[in-house]
Design a protein around this nucleic acid. Structure first.
Lengths: 189, 189
DNA sequence: ACATCTACCTAAAGGCTTTAGGCAAAAGGT
DNA sequence: ACCTTTTGCCTAAAGCCTTTAGGTAGATGT
């Protein structure tokens, strides 16, 4: 009887793929075992428990997202960079809904700090180099951008903008126009 | 042996309270039964199954939120109304994290349309009466506002803005200033 | 060929979900 | 008060998911 050749890495990737297919919240160790054609107990050599599996999928998704974001903003500035970064999140969420949901999974502070979370914050901050904002407004703007990227994407994923005109692509595009305008004319306190 | 006197309504409310204490994702029928000091099977007279319980909690939260939002925007306009509405969401999320998470629970379109979801959209739209926006920009703005309210609140709830200066209250306040400015000077296509 | 990992297995205990069938408290009519 | 109906809660049981313990055989290196 030949082996499947699993290790923690592969189990995590298979978990992420499975999440994209059936939804992150539906992930169970049993379901993943079925998918990998392996007995449930076998997975417990690669993953501490069900929670550990979810955390690993979350960290994987955060890292993949950060890599794509870094690619997207390299060599761009201002509105170009803003649009490129924003689209990374939205496109990733549409292509990999399970992974994207996983990226929102609540991690304890230590784990979060050790993962790719901080890279995301730095990249959003980097976008603002193209605009004339000083601290603390820069931080406020980072938080606003994060909120819009995540908020829009997650409402859209939840079907909130389906079945109503105008279509979501247009709102997205105009939302980015609006954010760009806002960053260029950020109000004084 | 005297009865607990439960019905669907009370079970749902107890479920919502429990969600606020232990987190919406931790909700199980068993846990709720323990909380109510009742055997698990008994709850299945009041609730079809675990999913049904969660949906009911979600609908309850959406309704409570809509009621508070309606109170908040009554008799206000412009930036006042914007701030009041935004604070309803944020305050509710902080006071009732379990219910707030429940309000984000994905409902099937039929259930969603029958619940308080559409009321929320109408109220956000009502806020924009105080600003000079025509369709389709009005809809784009509704979506942007929803994204920011939900996005900011959910990142804040997830601890994303902890342990970094300036504190989240300030960013929130300045974010609302920025949104107000944006709505007053919405960019042309 | 040998020892050593290591990937996978069987077995079993415990918890959550859900259905079926029953009993007794509450509610309502006469 | 008495009887009937309703209904709120129960016990029992089956099925699936999680997790641990202990065992076996394929891969790896000497």
């Amino acid at each position: 009887m030949t082996r499947a050749g699993l290790n923690t890495q592969r189990v995590t990737e298979a978990g992420a793929d499975l999440a994209d297919e059936i939804g992150f919240t539906q992930i169970t160790v049993s379901e993943l075992a079925r998918r990998l054609d392996v007995k449930v107990a076998s997975l417990y050599s690669h993953v501490r428990n069900s929670e550990d599996l979810k955390v690993r999928i979350a960290l994987l998704a955060l890292e993949e997202l950060a890599d794509r974001a870094a690619d997207a903003i390299a060599g761009r500035a201002g509105k170009d960079a803003l649009i490129a970064l924003a689209n990374v999140y939205r496109d990733y969420a549409r292509a990999h809904p399970g992974r994207y949901t996983a990226a929102q999974y609540r991690l304890d502070p230590q784990t979060a700090a050790a993962g790719a979370g901080p890279r995301h914050a730095r990249m959003t901050r980097a976008i603002l180099r193209g605009y004339d904002l000083q601290e603390p407004d820069r931080t406020h703007a980072v938080r606003l951008l994060g909120s819009v990227f995540h908020g829009y994407t997650s409402l859209e994923m939840g079907g909130g903008f389906d079945h109503s005109a105008p279509d979501s692509d247009q709102s997205w595009s105009r939302t980015l126009d609006a954010l760009d305008a806002l960053l260029r004319h950020w109000p004084r306190p």
